[in-house]
Design a protein around this nucleic acid. Structure first.
Lengths: 196, 196, 196, 196
DNA sequence: GATTAAGCGAGACGGTACGTCTTGTCTTGAG
DNA sequence: CTCAAGACAAGACGTACCGTCTCGCTTAATC
């Protein structure tokens, strides 16, 4: 119906350019890292003019963010029956996400650029953490119903703690990806916030 | 005994240049941020040639690190009598350090540059976290003696969790520095790692 | 056929930049001299980025050469009816060229840079002297027909002598530009190479 | 007499440094050329501090001049009995001087630096050409007595012509050192200035 | 024999230019 | 209106050299 479709005059944007740019960005992220990757290099590898990139993204941070975190967290929140189980599953997802080559290479620089720009700064909580926060909220709601935790548990602080822990331990220090890390961390936090 | 003192040939380095450079760096960090601060700008403000900077530091990351973390953590580890008290004190120190204007402005970009360079990467754990780790170890030892925690508590993981949490919550998201944040976080972690 | 015209892709070079750069170069030559003129200063005065200069010229020597010897020697060879008259006219042209403020300021340094670089060295005879040589050849041909000189007169040596004499007397020593200098020199050389 | 000998207090200058510096300068002139030779490089090769050079010479031009033109023209003026013979001998000396490796490498840059500095500019005629001029004057005096040339022959112009010709032909264009060049040039000039 | 003053090698110092790179915008002609 | 190509102004990069300075020595001439 209606749809208020844009007039769409002139030549339409080529969707293949879009894909090629994102692919080139992800590849360069792995090969050269965030700082050493320039928009010009992305354009050259994608076989695309620089303007074609600037027409779609305002700058490197936004481009890299989209190229590296394509996996839109549409995964449903875990439901294992216990807070510990849910937290472990959730953390394991976080760890896997931070360990992906392109993400691991991009994250520190990406976060730095977002933090440096006042406009982007607000989007850290919004775009980076929002999906995880939503799932954490569901997990907490269920835990409250089960009587495991109190209602006023500080979600944001817990989320920052989990994300920060994974970022430091895996993304930054580059610690070898121990399988038990997620479980260990989940255990500490779950026990720490449980009512008893 | 060895001695190995350098023969000290040629004109010795002027310590006033050293200080002027560090001061200029810290100021520019606050005024312009990490990424927008160039070595040339530091040199100009310090009234110094660029070579005088490059002669002492290999690059921006090392310079900024020294300029911003002058507070040599010689503070003795806290000893309040309880794990919770000690952790709260320790965390409060971390929060204060991350909230200092120059440090807050520098941290994200600084960590990104350290993480991007293989040589510097190893120094994150060494130079950034080592002082805190040492004090955390003492706190843990006392807690073990008191029977509050088990001997095999994973220090590195806990340290990364605390640092990561503070970095995300204060340094990155720029959350207003709530007085109770440190206490709240300490409470969760202390409870999470206690034996009972 | 061939044509070999470049496909002309991308934005064409702005001819106004070209002109502005050459004008700025000539001005700086007069004001500061060859050695004290930097590419950066030329760019700043022309209101142009340094790359815009390096995109068109490989270095300072080539740029200055084009800026200072714009007077494409399309002047027809003199034809006064006698060897002496022709030589005098030709030499007067050389003196005037070497006395032009920009040329006088640039010549010693320019020749030095050309002589120092093996690639440019060959262009001294080609680009600097070629136009004059062509006209000298015509003058000599006519003089041979008139029976004034022999056919095997060494053109290159005479040309180097004339150019060298003017360069030393006017360009280098900075001798005041006496009106009779050209005539005097022409008289000596004309008499020196005449058959009788 | 008096002499006004300097009091000469303190340690006298080491003559071995003097020699080492001049030798290093001449060597570097041949190996790297004038422009690419820095005072620092000379000092390093001579095993000497930069100040030891600056204490004796005001700058590169003066140093190189002394290093390259050590052969103080104490050679007596030629006396072959004819103007042509004398001029040929004189020119042959000039050619030989300009063809010496160190001199050939240094000359264009050296002249450019002398010409660029108002203070040094005057010394071109003085230091470079004076010895040759003195000998040319003697040759001319004898030729006048013999009746070969007139008394008012313009010595300076002839000297500039000879020097300029050799500089352009041998030093600048790097023409192969033809044995007959000097004779040919001498013939032209001698005939050009003779009374008949 | 002690003092003094300059010479000496080394190298730090404030400046400045180098030629390359990246940024985000602009300007072509072709689709 | 998009696209690939590439020019454009701005300015940072890390290196090299300049000519001066500041060290701790050494080396004579003077006291």
């Amino acid at each position: 119906m209606s749809d208020a479709s844009p007039p769409s005059r002139g030549r339409p944007r080529d969707p293949r350019s879009h894909e090629a740019i994102l692919r080139a960005t992800a590849e360069l992220m792995v090969e050269s890292g965030y700082a050493a990757t320039s928009i010009g290099a992305v354009a050259a590898r994608a076989g695309v003019g620089k303007d074609t990139i600037y027409r779609r993204w305002p700058g490197k941070p936004e481009l890299v963010f989209e190229a590296v975190f394509t996996t839109t967290d549409e995964v449903p929140p875990p439901d294992t029956g216990t807070l510990l189980g849910d937290l472990t599953a959730l953390l394991q997802g976080l760890v896997d996400e931070f360990r992906a080559p392109a993400a691991a290479a991009a994250l520190p620089g990406l976060l730095a650029d977002f933090a440096a720009d006042p406009d982007l700064r607000a989007r850290i909580r919004g775009d980076f953490l929002a999906p995880s926060k939503e799932r954490l909220l569901v997990v907490f709601e269920r835990a409250v119903l089960r009587g495991e935790i109190a209602g006023e548990t500080p979600v944001d602080l817990v989320l920052d703690t989990l994300a920060g822990a994974v970022f430091f331990h895996v993304g930054l220090v580059g610690e070898h990806p121990r399988r038990e890390t997620a479980a260990l961390l989940a255990a500490v936090v779950a026990k720490g916030i449980e009512v008893r």
